[in-house]
């Protein structure tokens, strides 16, 4: 079984975008969560195992390098990655509305878990205010960004499918997805 580095590369790329680009494209005080989008995407594509592993390492990287409480993002993104993997894989399609809704929902879940964990650790947080000023705007922003990204991702994946099917490389972490896309 060949080891696939693509999720790792995607997570590092998303992390670089998160640390460099995201702070500069704030809208209404919130910035997009590129790492979350990547984690959820892999969850949709590859199921709960890949989703949760991606979520764990993406969150851990975020915690380590962004000075947040170590384990907070790792835990919340692990759960979201797993949950997104549980969703029917029909979500991933060229129809960008479903992925948008899915990203919106998963962002709500992720941010809620994050909020709940922080509250559990003793931080005084107004849930209503946090929801209004951070959670909902962030979910909307991520959903819009996902709507813009998904058509591009779908095309890339189709091209990759054709290339790999010709060379017979259908094993690895993306094998189920590639087989599914090829069937279409």
């Amino acid at each position: 079984m060949k080891l696939n580095y693509q999720p790792a590369i995607a997570i590092v790329a998303a992390f670089l975008l998160q640390t460099t680009l995201a702070p500069h494209i704030r809208v209404g005080g919130v910035q997009p969560d590129f790492l979350l989008i990547v984690v959820v995407t892999y969850g949709f594509l590859e199921g709960p195992v890949v989703g949760s592993v991606c979520g764990f390492f993406a969150g851990l990287l975020q915690d380590l390098l962004l000075m947040t409480t170590l384990g907070l993002n790792a835990l919340s993104k692990t759960l979201v990655g797993y949950l997104s993997g549980m969703v029917e894989q029909k979500v991933f399609s060229e129809n960008f509305v479903l992925p948008m809704l899915a990203i919106f929902a998963t962002t709500l879940i992720s941010e809620s878990i994050f909020l709940a964990l922080r509250a559990t650790l003793g931080e005084s947080i107004s849930l209503i205010r946090a929801s209004r000023s951070i959670v909902l705007p962030a979910a909307t922003y991520n959903a819009v960004l996902a709507g813009l990204c998904y058509p591009v991702l779908a095309r890339v994946l189709k091209r990759q499918t054709r290339t790999q099917s010709r060379s017979g490389e259908l094993d690895g972490a993306f094998a189920p997805t590639l087989q599914r896309v090829r069937k279409k």
Binding site: S52, L70, G71, A74, L75, T78
Partner: peptide, 10 residues
């Protein structure tokens, strides 16, 4: 993964 995260937190 959850346990590892919680261990990290702890």
């Amino acid at each position: 993964l959850v346990v590892v995260s919680v261990v990290f937190l702890s």
